[in-house]
Design a protein around this nucleic acid. Structure first.
Lengths: 222, 222
DNA sequence: TAGATTGTTAATCGATTAACAATC
DNA sequence: TAGATTGTTAATCGATTAACAATC
């Protein structure tokens, strides 16, 4: 029976993975401590240790955690060792950026199918993969046993694309179109909404401008 | 004196904004209820009402919140009405995708400077903006009073680019390179790590495959 | 050994949810 | 009015942090 891992912990796992990886690349040391991890990620060190408990990774008092073991355990836990083949629909700039990015293979993602509706795109090659007409998707999914679909279409066509994907057998969707997709509840959707992300910067800038104004006012008063 | 808004609430604001927007586009109704909002976002309705308290938005019992007022209050609060001019460094596919995306203007983001080091990219036009050599960035920032920098370079050059940005006067950084940038603590960094995001899909797929295997085993036993 | 770091429990903190009076 | 929905308080839940004994 596996313990249910809290979402915040799950969100920190890729960060630990990244720190452990670059630690192994940078230093020639075997062990990494909870304090080191916590400082890299500006968090509390007891939180690191608590998170480690979920991984059943045995650290050594006075020494730390074996960095290689930690990285591997995280990679295994996060599923980076399982190769996931995916297809992508919408080969505009964003689709091309994602299709061309080599780094995903380290995380177990390989994009083996590219689809678009535009005559101009069809037939183009991105890396080793040729863009096919969207109509070919339906047969492509069962043929290659694909479970992951990536949506980089405009907002207007995203819902119809996800419907097609699900009909074809896709179980997990990585959605870059800025809308909330309607899907059956057994389908996993990971939204990547850049405008939403920008909101945090926008909010920061608003606070920043206000602070500046306040300073000016304070100056004037003095 | 402004109340400090909890981070989880702040993360939900753009979602409310999106629901309110599409509600206004779709229906010809004036009022939107907490239950409607909560169902669109699959959350608890009392959480919606609690979040609204932070906005000082007055809803009417039996009727709901004025949808237009809600959208505007959120837009104002999130700073969408303040136009933020930004520059972007690294005009590969991802940089082009972001530079070319029209939707950001609705959120107050306008990219007015594009920079790259590659001779091939310099001089290219994306929309109305021409790609300039990176060496021109330093003077561009104060000249246009830019506060936001977007990094879409490869991992290897991201740290040196952010150092240049900060030296030039940038205060907020939207980072798409897959590494943790080292910056002074008054600089705001919003990381957009796609590989990290993919981890959730990867983890889902791992659970999914396991479930499938279990079913097969159960079948064999029966 | 002395000292540093883990592993784990207990205390704290903060966010979510439930409940319901107030209100239109 | 009756009924639906807000606004808000109190109860619950869960995550973070503090503390420290165990350990190498």
């Amino acid at each position: 029976m596996e313990k249910q891992i809290p979402r915040p912990t799950l969100e920190r796992f890729p960060k630990y993975y990244q720190v452990a990886s670059s630690f192994l690349n940078k230093y020639n040391e075997l062990y990494i401590s909870s304090v080191y991890l916590s400082e890299c990620l500006s968090m509390d060190d007891s939180q690191v240790r608590r998170d480690m408990m979920y991984l059943d990774i045995g650290g050594k008092p006075r020494v730390g955690y074996n960095a290689g073991e930690l990285r591997n355990t995280l990679a295994h836990y996060l599923g980076y060792f399982n190769l996931n083949e995916a297809l992508l629909v919408g080969t505009g700039h964003l689709g091309k950026a994602i299709a061309a990015y080599k780094g995903f293979e380290d995380y177990g993602l390989r994009i083996i199918g590219l689809f678009d509706v535009s005559e101009e795109e069809i037939g183009k090659k991105i890396g080793k993969v040729t863009v096919q007409p969207l109509s070919k998707m339906k047969s492509f999914v069962p043929k290659h046993n694909i479970r992951i679909g990536i949506i980089t279409t405009p907002e207007s066509s995203a819902q119809s694309v996800v419907d097609m994907m699900i009909a074809a057998g896709i179980k997990a969707v990585w959605n870059f179109a800025p809308l909330r997709l309607l899907v059956p509840e057994d389908i996993f959707v990971q939204d990547e909404n850049l405008a939403e992300s920008f909101s945090f910067i926008s909010h920061f800038m608003k606070q920043f401008e206000k602070k500046k104004t306040n300073k000016v006012i304070i100056k004037k008063i003095q």
